[in-house]
Amino acid sequence: MSNKLLSGSQQVETDLDQPLYTPIKRRSFFMYAGATAGATALVLAGCSKSDSSPGMVSVGSGDVGVLNYAYALEQLEAGFYTQLRTGSYYTGLAAGNAEKLILDDLYYHEVIHREFFKAAITGAGATPIKALTPDFSKIDFTSRTSVLGTAKAFEDLGVAAYNGAGRRITSANYLVIAGKIVSVEARHAAIIRDLVSEGTFVGSDVVAIGTTSTEISKDPATVVATANTFLADGSKLDVSGIQ
């Protein structure tokens, strides 16, 4: 039932709005899908919360819920780095400029993460959430301060989100995959913070410097409270299924 609803709404969104991604070749991914154990159970888990909170996009529950949650955040990040490439701050950067090369790499990495999750969720026999429509109206893509400040917010949020999601994952395989991505997000966060202010790769806003020097992780509800401010109505996230 929910599959039908999701695919239906995805069609509408694709027509009406600018999607954040270009669809991947699902068929090629299915070739590898057989290796995923418990796919049926995951699909069922993923459906349980699909119809809650009208107007919101439910990520579902269980491991697929966490994967869709990560997919949603990667959509947001990838959408941001995609859009900034048309903004005058980025287009004004000279070839070979360090910031340009960094923003290029972040664009590549985040789009790859987004496409990977879409493929992985499909490969697990589950349904990815739709392509979300962002709302980047608060970002000034002509301004270095706005662009880098937003990049910093997204990267730090991503790290805190993955760290907070780890305990909600039951599959060791998915936990390792999340780990493979979060450390790259942390590397991103560090250099972006250094671009904003040299030597602030860790700061008391993200790491408990005074005590354990551990990252301040965030649970899904806290993360989407911020993420939803960058998502249009109809694309805001409901993470109650994994909270």
Partner: peptide, 18 residues
């Protein structure tokens, strides 16, 4: 403990980046 370890893991990655 898992969360605590993950919260060290990402700080190590920030260090490596810097």
């Amino acid at each position: 403990v898992l969360t605590a370890a993950l919260n060290i893991h990402s700080v190590e990655a920030r260090h490596a980046s810097r």
